[in-house]
């Protein structure tokens, strides 16, 4: 009996030692900065406690002029909703493209699977900024895309500086984060379960709906999380592909930071984080409830 306990304890000691570097890293570069963010968010320039920054996020207004005329809006709520909208659209597009792709890859031969996954990952090895710049040259009015349209005898389309361009950029940049977790769940799925479903009366669609989909949900949820969160807080893509016309929440944080409004920048970041955490908790909850049924 003693032996077994000893072994278990030694195992956990080794485990703890292995974890030490990461624990130190996490404490220094994750926990401490988070505390700082919270501290800055709830203090003023003299580091006195205040809720002004948070209040400002919800109450600040500005005038917007467009075709419909000029009206007063809640600045940061509008920016937040715009970020959320673009992020959700990008996530949905990633899911719609990524899910069938992940399924098709998971059913291919082992060799083909490796090649396909490599092809999906290779763009990730390129620098994020370079990829975004590449899209600028592709999408601009005299760019490659419009050049090809011209060759086909079609009129050029104005894309750069539209929400569409921002969405294209987000989808391109975050697509691998959607497909990989879904693929890894599907690749591990027991083929016998799919055979059992066919044996028990399901056609291909039935197998997908009643077995593959529910069993792949954990992958879908982590894919959604991994695409939604970076795309909601991105600022670079919107600046470059949106010509800075679509001020997103990430841009707002950056703008306040650059303007040396550290406390308000921290407050926006903090509020964004809380909202995302709540969203994730709700999603996780519904995922668990589904799994329990």
């Amino acid at each position: 009996m003693g032996n077994k306990n000893m072994a278990a304890r030694r195992g956990s000691l080794i485990q703890r030692l292995c974890l030490a570097p990461y624990s130190v890293w996490a404490a220094l570069f994750i926990v401490v900065p988070l505390i700082f963010v919270a501290y800055y968010a709830f203090t003023d320039n003299a580091f006195n406690f205040t809720l002004d920054n948070v209040r400002r996020f919800f109450t600040a207004t500005s005038n917007v002029t467009d075709e419909a005329g000029t009206r007063e809006v809640h600045t940061y709520l509008l920016i937040f909703m715009r970020s959320l909208k673009l992020a959700v659209i990008s996530t949905v597009i990633c899911l719609i493209m990524g899910y069938p792709a992940a399924y098709i890859i998971s059913t291919a031969s082992a060799r083909t699977q490796k090649i396909m996954i490599a092809l999906i990952m290779i763009p990730m090895w390129m620098n994020f900024l370079i990829r975004t710049y590449a899209w600028m040259t592709i999408l601009q009015d005299t760019g490659i895309f419009n050049g090809m349209l011209g060759l086909l005898g079609l009129k050029p389309i104005h894309i750069i500086g539209t929400e569409g361009a921002v969405v294209i950029g987000m989808v391109y940049d975050y697509f691998p984060y959607m497909i990989l977790p879904i693929y890894s769940v599907m690749a591990k799925m027991d083929v016998k379960l799919l055979e059992a479903a066919r044996d028990l009366g399901c056609n291909s669609f039935g197998v997908l709906r009643r077995v593959i989909w529910p069993l792949s949900l954990p992958g879908v949820f982590s894919g959604i999380t991994m695409v939604l969160i970076p795309s909601i807080s991105t600022f670079y893509i919107s600046q470059k592909l949106g010509n800075g016309k679509f001020y997103l929440i990430g841009d707002a944080i950056e703008g306040q930071y650059v303007a040396n409004n550290l406390h308000f920048a921290a407050a926006i970041a903090f509020i964004l984080m809380v909202i995302l955490l709540v969203c994730m908790a709700v999603m996780q909850r519904s995922a668990n409830r589904r799994a329990a049924v």
């Binding site: 016998k192 055979e195 066919r198 044996d199 069993l215 049924v293």
Partner: peptide, 22 residues
């Protein structure tokens, strides 16, 4: 004739029960 249209059912070696269903 595909499996789902055959009036035949299988008990699999490792049962192949659906883990997401009770």
């Amino acid at each position: 004739v595909p499996p789902y249209k055959r009036n035949v059912n299988t008990v699999f070696q490792r049962y192949a029960l659906f883990p997401h269903l009770n």
